[in-house]
Write a protein that binds this DNA or RNA. Structure first.
Lengths: 202, 202
DNA sequence: ATCGTAACGTAACAGCGTCGCGATAGGCTG
DNA sequence: CAGCCTATCGCGACGCTGTTACGTTACGAT
């Protein structure tokens, strides 16, 4: 019974695509409920029917960004040398961040006003790093990172790459060539450090 | 000639203090020109006379945050061991970030909608790390970080601490005790790595 | 054919950043 | 001392925002 819904899955996809484009082309200021729904050829009601509210729309975008990050990581081949594989994973993270800076900003921190991932969404960010945890675990198991806690190392590497990404997106790392050198060097130093057994007990 | 200005230096300080308090207590959503000016006992015009526009007000807050960060760093005593001094500097960074998360978010990236530091302000962020650059320079000069470019190392350490701060503020590092352990461990690994001469030419 | 109901578009609400406009207040000139 | 000049003031309006109450519409069930 009742009127059949026209705000369907297709409309949902269109809204998400438009929101993503607007975020990329005009930044967070361009993403308003009116603007997005109008450019998607529908009305503001559609956003509220499909996503609950504006934050719901942003949450969907966030999940999409997390998925993109996960795909970038899973495309990295395994390597028996931790330095090679971890460097490749870091550069995959960098590629994802540079590819869609605004989407990455939404994903990793505060590029959009009041948006903050909570609960399941916050865990989504961590899950997108599963590939890194798995790699570090493998290196620990085979004695290549002696005495290390895989989750701790993955967290710390995550911190490093996120910080480098934030700095590069703000222009603090110079031109892309120099920036990549900074990434490689930082990862190299970190992995070198992790290859030594930790001196503080954990 | 003309009417004497009542939007003076005192008004400016009051507006900045109110804006800082609102940012700390209610986040970026609480900082509106109307709200700030009203709670400061003046009118919206004062903000536009003294700061140009809302972004001018935020810029002034940003500069204040940079200054706070610089002070935290300069309070760290010198030490002949790079590991000791750099760890202390990193924990000073952490303390500044945790002390006023919203101000730090404004300072380091996108905690406020359309705000992005440019030009002189972006350089201000780098200048707040002068103490780190100086320390690394000293270690390079005395051969404790052989073959390193002080500016590159400082940038990379900056990336590391910023990333860790962002992760911790988002709750990804667990309770404060574990978080501090993560910080110490990450810095330890990085410094250990920097003590080895770089294998890639720079 | 009529009714019930669910989803629709519209229009309104409060709040936002910004700025044009008339009022105001003090220093300079006569 | 009176009056003008002008820089600064507060007020109110403009167009925007996210959200939602409301009247309308379209279909399945009776």
């Amino acid at each position: 019974m009742g009127r059949p819904r026209e705000h369907d899955e297709q409309t949902r996809r269109t809204l998400l695509a438009v929101a993503g484009d607007l975020l990329a082309s005009e930044g967070s200021a361009g993403v308003s409920v009116r603007r997005v729904s109008q450019e998607a050829g529908t009305t503001t009601r559609a956003v509220y029917s499909l996503f609950g509210d504006k934050e719901g729309l942003l949450r969907a975008l966030y999940q999409q960004a997390a998925e993109t990050m996960r795909h970038h990581h899973e495309a990295v081949p395994e390597d028996e040398d931790p330095l090679v594989e971890i460097t490749a994973l870091a550069l995959a993270y960098r590629a994802a961040a540079l590819e869609e800076p605004n989407l990455y900003g939404l994903f990793m921190s505060g590029a959009v006003p009041g948006f903050r991932p909570v609960g399941e969404d916050a865990r989504l960010a961590r899950r997108s790093l599963a590939r890194v945890v798995q790699a570090v675990q493998r290196f620990v198991d085979t004695g290549k990172l002696p005495g290390r806690d895989p989750r701790a190392v993955a967290q710390q590497l995550w911190g490093l790459v996120h910080g480098l990404a934030a700095l590069e997106l703000q222009g603090h790392l110079g031109p892309p060539g120099q920036a990549e050198a900074r990434w490689r060097d930082a990862v190299l130093a970190a992995v070198t450090g992790y290859r030594q057994p930790p001196s503080t007990p954990q």
